[in-house]
Write a protein that binds this DNA or RNA. Structure first.
Length: 529
RNA sequence: GAUUCGGUAGCUCAGCUGGUAGAGCAUUACACUUUUAAUGUAGGGGUCCUGGGUUCGAGUCCCAGCCGGAUCACCA
């Protein structure tokens, strides 16, 4: 009695809705009947909904349909008195279960059906069914239940999504609900689950392709002393025992190159990177880049390899290289178009900036109404010019090649074109998906490039790179000629799964915390850094 | 960070120039032993995001804040 009162008091404190109070009441009733709503025993699942739905009709006599055990979440109930249809959903699909009172309650005691099944079972509960497969009068492959057991009671009502002939009704669309409560989103929106299956498939295809070609998967530090390998603001943290700051990596490039120095000729890593920048449809503070580095190759080889890899990934995912993306049809068939950044600017603006100095390019920017900052060097100005006037034009996969040296501090100088480097970016659907170089392996040149970055930093560019002396020391031992690439995995997944937002290819996209903790509010405002 | 749109029942949404809070689904009760957005009948359910203000009276108007989306800025 005391426990009951305590429980009632606590539930009052929780501000439970009426359906939530009811479900808690049902939980108690189950326990009072001696039924554990959260049993410990394994349930011997021997079949899936999809297996039943897709294979029963062609092979009805197979023994395996005679004694099945299936588990899943109750997604709908059509109660007709002494019989009912229950739709259950398991990992891959849905199937309906025919539950007849006299089958699950063969004796005089009908309470399992009349009370447990009809009164205490809710949509969202997870149940186990034992029975056999059959086809209903209306022709639907179904399960005839002989036994039914509760495997987990749901205390929170699920948003109900109804569907008929592929059309859905009252689907949960609120992005805040979907991203904060992804678990519920995954339950009620099957297409979301499908997108994430595809993401896993994409990563597996890439990994297989790399492994098949002799690459070795490695792990490198996430906590770094010097956040190198890219131009971005890092997250900073602190190591207590050493009493020094650490940075969450913005890239793993410099570590993979150290491994190339160490004698591994082909290394790759799916690197979770962290950048302390804004968030939008194509940016999340943590995101995944695949980087790989191959000794004795150059950026031409890398273009060939990349287009073959993406062609194969698209093919394995969709069975075709032609992929629907919004209004566009993206063709992943190799080879991809190649165009130099200066040609791209010339084509789209009519200005040939390839021979211009910093001031000349600045005046072109002004003519085109492109905002510039005094801190911008020649490289940054060209980058700005390209992204403002060209980037969105490249819908089909296109390699933009031969960037100016100023914007590529880790890239080898071009073998024949003065002032350029051997670099390409891969544009798909107007977005950068990959960035690759013939890697700079001249330690003296590399030191000078770092020093250029320091000058940019002094001009006010807060994303210029730091000097990494240990990386330079590694290069001094000699790094073989190497080509490397970084591929934005989240963006690639968006493009291959027809998603408009990075949040739709990340299980748990970053969001502002839901509730402000009182403690945090009471603390001094200075502590927010 | 800026601009803009939004936040009403578990879900999807309506709510006019300010006047007692609405629908469908879900839920509860009853009926129904092959239904499938099951059906029929009858109910219950609200911190209208939060806090101020204007007003006799605020879901509605004003101000501030919180959360989200879109666009822009930074960036991949």
């Amino acid at each position: 009695m005391l426990r009951l009162l305590l429980r009632l008091f606590m539930e009052n404190q929780l501000h439970l809705s009426e359906p939530e109070r009811l479900r808690r009441q049902k939980l108690i009733e189950l326990q009072e009947m001696g039924i554990n709503p959260y049993p410990a025993e394994a349930f011997p699942v021997n079949i899936t909904a999809t297996d039943i739905k897709s294979n029963f009709e062609a092979d009805k006599e197979n023994q395996k349909w005679k004694e099945i055990a299936i588990a899943g979440r109750v997604m709908g109930v059509r109660d007709m008195g002494k019989a009912a249809f229950v739709v259950i959903q398991d990992d891959l699909g849905k199937v309906q279960v025919y539950v007849r009172r006299d089958d699950i309650c063969p004796s005089e005691d009908k309470s399992l059906y009349d009370v447990v099944f009809k009164k205490l079972l809710d949509i969202g509960d997870i149940i186990g069914i034992k029975g056999f497969v059959f086809i209903t009068k209306t022709g639907e492959v179904s399960i005839h239940a002989n036994e039914i057991s509760i495997l987990s009671k749901a205390l929170r009502p699920l948003p109900i999504v109804k569907e008929k002939e592929g059309e859905t009704f009252d689907a949960v669309t609120d992005p805040e609900f979907r991203y904060r409560q992804r678990y519920a989103d995954l339950i009620v929106n099957p297409h979301v689950k499908d997108t994430f299956r595809k993401r896993t498939q994409i990563i597996r295809s890439i990994r297989d392709f790399l492994n098949d070609h002799g690459a070795m998967e490695v792990d490198t530090p996430v906590l770094q002393n010097i956040p190198g390998g890219a131009a971005a603001r890092p997250f900073i943290t602190h190591h207590n025992a050493l009493d020094i700051p650490f940075y969450l990596r913005i890239a793993n490039e410099l570590y993979l190159k150290r491994l190339i120095v160490g004698g591994f000729d082909w290394v790759y890593e799916f690197s979770r990177n962290f950048r302390n920048e804004g968030m939008d449809r194509t940016h999340n503070p943590e995101f995944t880049i695949l980087e790989f580095y191959v000794a004795y190759k150059d950026y031409y080889w890398m273009m060939d390899f990349t287009e073959r890899m993406l062609e194969k990934v698209a093919m394995e995912l969709h069975g075709t290289t032609s992929v629907q993306l919004g209004e566009n049809q993206i063709e992943f068939k190799a080879p991809f178009k190649r165009i130099s950044i200066f040609e791209a600017i010339l084509e789209n603006t009519g200005f040939d900036v390839s021979q211009m100095d910093e001031e000349g390019i600045r005046s072109v920017c002004q003519k085109l109404n492109i905002h510039t900052e005094p801190s911008m060097g020649k490289g940054k100005l060209i980058d700005e010019l390209f992204s403002e006037t060209c980037e969105s034009k490249f819908v089909q996969p296109t390699f933009i090649i031969d960037y100016p040296v100023e914007m590529s501090p880790l890239t080898k100088k071009h073998r024949s074109k003065e002032g350029l480097v051997e670099r390409f970016e891969l544009m798909i659907n107007g977005k950068e998906v990959a960035n690759a170089y013939s890697e700079l392996n001249d330690p003296i040149d590399q030191r000078e490039r770092f020093e250029e970055q320091i000058k940019l930093m002094e001009r006010g560019d807060d994303e210029a790179m730091f000097i990494d002396d240990d990386f330079l020391r590694a290069l001094e031992y000699g790094m073989p000629p190497t080509s490397g690439i970084g591929i934005g995995i989240d963006r690639l997944c968006m493009m291959l799964t027809n998603q408009q937002s990075i949040q739709d290819v990340l299980f748990f996209p970053q969001m502002r915390p839901e509730v402000r903790h009182k403690l945090a509010e009471e603390e001094s405002p200075e502590s927010s850094n």
